[in-house]
Amino acid sequence: PDLGLTQLFADPNLIENLKKNPKTSEMMKDPQLVAKLIGYKQNPQAIGQDLFTDPRLMTIMATLMGVDL
């Protein structure tokens, strides 16, 4: 199971919303991170391994779920 990750990354406004959010806007200036996020739309399971190697993803996930870290 993808634990709902498919829906989190399926939002067509995902990148724009993250660019507008004060907690994630600075991160979204990294083209490699943006490319990763776009890739998760097609393969949400890929985030599982990346969560352990890129701490920014935890902040992004929390933001998408509405959790304040």
Score class of each variant (00 low, 15 high):
residue 59 T to S: 08
residue 57 L to D: 00
residue 37 L to C: 02
residue 63 T to Y: 15
residue 36 K to V: 08
residue 42 Q to W: 06
residue 49 Q to V: 14
residue 26 E to H: 11
residue 10 A to W: 09
residue 63 T to H: 10
residue 12 P to A: 09
residue 4 G to W: 15
residue 51 L to A: 10
residue 43 N to L: 03
residue 16 E to Q: 10
residue 43 N to R: 05
residue 61 M to K: 03
residue 26 E to V: 07
residue 36 K to Q: 10
residue 3 L to G: 15
residue 43 N to C: 07
residue 56 R to F: 06
residue 11 D to M: 04
residue 45 Q to S: 14
residue 64 L to I: 10
residue 11 D to V: 04
residue 3 L to K: 12
residue 3 L to C: 11
residue 23 K to R: 13
residue 59 T to P: 02
residue 67 V to Y: 13
residue 44 P to W: 09
residue 20 K to C: 07
residue 16 E to M: 10
residue 18 L to H: 00
residue 12 P to H: 06
residue 4 G to N: 15
residue 2 D to F: 04
residue 58 M to N: 06
residue 48 G to E: 15
residue 65 M to V: 08
residue 51 L to D: 04
residue 13 N to T: 07
residue 5 L to I: 13
residue 43 N to I: 03
residue 5 L to D: 04
residue 18 L to S: 00
residue 33 L to P: 00
residue 59 T to W: 13
residue 39 G to A: 14
residue 64 L to A: 04
residue 10 A to G: 10
residue 21 N to F: 05
residue 50 D to C: 05
residue 9 F to P: 01
residue 35 A to E: 13
residue 10 A to N: 12
residue 48 G to T: 15
residue 62 A to F: 14
residue 3 L to I: 12
residue 62 A to D: 07
residue 10 A to F: 08
residue 24 T to N: 01
residue 35 A to Q: 12
residue 65 M to A: 09
residue 34 V to G: 01
residue 55 P to Q: 07
residue 30 D to N: 04
residue 12 P to G: 05
residue 24 T to A: 02
residue 20 K to H: 10
residue 61 M to C: 09
residue 39 G to H: 14
residue 22 P to M: 05
residue 8 L to G: 02
residue 2 D to S: 14
residue 68 D to H: 05
residue 22 P to W: 05
residue 60 I to H: 00
residue 40 Y to I: 07
residue 58 M to D: 03
residue 55 P to F: 08
residue 52 F to Q: 12
residue 43 N to Y: 08
residue 20 K to P: 00
residue 51 L to G: 05
residue 61 M to G: 02
residue 12 P to W: 04
residue 25 S to V: 07
residue 45 Q to P: 06
residue 32 Q to F: 13
residue 17 N to P: 01
residue 51 L to P: 04
residue 65 M to Q: 08
residue 54 D to E: 05
residue 11 D to T: 04
residue 19 K to H: 07
residue 31 P to K: 10
residue 54 D to S: 02
residue 37 L to S: 00
residue 13 N to V: 03
residue 16 E to Y: 07
residue 18 L to A: 02
residue 1 P to T: 13
residue 69 L to G: 14
residue 60 I to W: 02
residue 13 N to L: 09
residue 49 Q to D: 11
residue 49 Q to H: 12
residue 41 K to A: 15
residue 54 D to A: 01
residue 40 Y to M: 07
residue 2 D to K: 12
residue 28 M to V: 04
residue 14 L to W: 06
residue 42 Q to P: 02
residue 58 M to S: 07
residue 28 M to R: 00
residue 37 L to K: 00
residue 51 L to T: 06
residue 33 L to Y: 03
residue 50 D to A: 06
residue 48 G to N: 14
residue 55 P to K: 09
residue 68 D to C: 04
residue 65 M to D: 03
residue 62 A to M: 14
residue 1 P to K: 03
residue 31 P to R: 07
residue 50 D to Q: 05
residue 46 A to K: 12
residue 30 D to P: 00
residue 50 D to F: 04
residue 63 T to F: 15
residue 57 L to K: 00
residue 52 F to M: 13
residue 9 F to S: 02
residue 56 R to S: 04
residue 21 N to A: 04
residue 60 I to D: 00
residue 2 D to C: 09
residue 35 A to H: 07
residue 54 D to W: 02
residue 46 A to W: 11
residue 54 D to Q: 01
residue 33 L to T: 02
residue 59 T to C: 08
residue 65 M to K: 09
residue 63 T to Q: 08
residue 5 L to T: 07
residue 35 A to I: 09
residue 44 P to L: 09
residue 9 F to I: 05
residue 39 G to Y: 15
residue 19 K to L: 11
residue 15 I to Q: 01
residue 31 P to V: 08
residue 66 G to M: 08
residue 4 G to E: 13
residue 56 R to L: 08
residue 66 G to A: 07
residue 54 D to Y: 02
residue 69 L to Y: 03
residue 49 Q to P: 11
residue 63 T to K: 03
residue 11 D to K: 03
residue 40 Y to N: 01
residue 37 L to M: 05
residue 65 M to C: 07
residue 35 A to N: 09
residue 13 N to W: 08
residue 43 N to K: 05
residue 37 L to N: 00
residue 26 E to S: 08
residue 43 N to Q: 06
residue 60 I to P: 00
residue 52 F to T: 08
residue 26 E to P: 06
residue 13 N to M: 10
residue 39 G to F: 15
residue 62 A to V: 11
residue 19 K to E: 08
residue 52 F to R: 11
residue 25 S to A: 14
residue 65 M to N: 05
residue 12 P to S: 06
residue 53 T to A: 11
residue 19 K to W: 05
residue 5 L to F: 15
residue 33 L to C: 02
residue 41 K to V: 13
residue 26 E to I: 06
residue 20 K to E: 07
residue 15 I to W: 05
residue 61 M to E: 01
residue 47 I to Q: 04
residue 12 P to N: 07
residue 7 Q to C: 10
residue 25 S to Q: 10
residue 10 A to H: 10
residue 60 I to F: 03
residue 38 I to E: 13
residue 10 A to I: 07
residue 38 I to P: 00
residue 63 T to G: 03
residue 22 P to Y: 05
residue 62 A to N: 11
residue 69 L to R: 06
residue 17 N to M: 11
residue 22 P to S: 07
residue 12 P to L: 05
residue 25 S to C: 08
residue 50 D to Y: 02
residue 45 Q to E: 15
residue 58 M to A: 08
residue 21 N to L: 04
residue 17 N to R: 13
residue 54 D to L: 01
residue 67 V to G: 12
residue 67 V to W: 15
residue 41 K to N: 12
residue 37 L to E: 00
residue 40 Y to P: 00
residue 28 M to Q: 00
residue 64 L to T: 02
residue 5 L to W: 14
residue 1 P to S: 13
residue 40 Y to K: 01
residue 66 G to T: 08
residue 33 L to E: 00
residue 34 V to F: 03
residue 45 Q to K: 10
residue 14 L to N: 03
residue 44 P to N: 04
residue 4 G to Y: 15
residue 46 A to P: 05
residue 35 A to W: 05
residue 28 M to H: 00
residue 8 L to K: 05
residue 43 N to E: 05
residue 69 L to I: 15
residue 27 M to K: 01
residue 15 I to C: 06
residue 27 M to S: 03
residue 26 E to W: 08
residue 35 A to S: 10
residue 27 M to Y: 12
residue 21 N to D: 09
residue 16 E to F: 08
residue 59 T to V: 13
residue 55 P to A: 11
residue 7 Q to T: 12
residue 26 E to A: 10
residue 56 R to P: 02
residue 61 M to N: 01
residue 4 G to R: 15
residue 61 M to D: 00
residue 31 P to N: 08
residue 65 M to R: 10
residue 11 D to P: 03
residue 4 G to F: 15
residue 67 V to H: 14
residue 10 A to L: 13
residue 13 N to I: 04
residue 25 S to F: 06
residue 64 L to C: 03
residue 9 F to L: 11
residue 23 K to M: 11
residue 46 A to H: 09
residue 62 A to P: 01
residue 48 G to M: 15
residue 15 I to N: 01
residue 4 G to P: 14
residue 69 L to D: 15
residue 48 G to L: 15
residue 33 L to M: 05
residue 68 D to V: 02
residue 47 I to Y: 11
residue 63 T to P: 01
residue 46 A to S: 13
residue 14 L to R: 01
residue 30 D to A: 01
residue 30 D to V: 02
residue 14 L to S: 03
residue 41 K to Y: 09
residue 35 A to F: 06
residue 37 L to F: 03
residue 50 D to N: 05
residue 28 M to W: 01
residue 18 L to E: 00
residue 6 T to P: 10
residue 22 P to F: 04
residue 44 P to K: 03
residue 30 D to Q: 02
residue 56 R to Q: 07
residue 11 D to E: 08
residue 64 L to S: 02
residue 29 K to S: 09
residue 39 G to S: 14
residue 34 V to T: 04
residue 47 I to S: 05
residue 61 M to H: 04
residue 17 N to V: 12
residue 24 T to S: 03
residue 8 L to I: 13
residue 45 Q to Y: 09
residue 16 E to L: 10
residue 32 Q to L: 14
residue 53 T to Y: 08
residue 60 I to S: 00
residue 42 Q to Y: 11
residue 30 D to G: 00
residue 16 E to H: 09
residue 55 P to D: 06
residue 14 L to T: 06
residue 39 G to R: 13
residue 9 F to H: 02
residue 58 M to R: 11
residue 30 D to F: 02
residue 39 G to T: 12
residue 25 S to L: 08
residue 58 M to L: 14
residue 28 M to I: 05
residue 44 P to C: 05
residue 5 L to P: 07
residue 10 A to Y: 06
residue 29 K to Y: 04
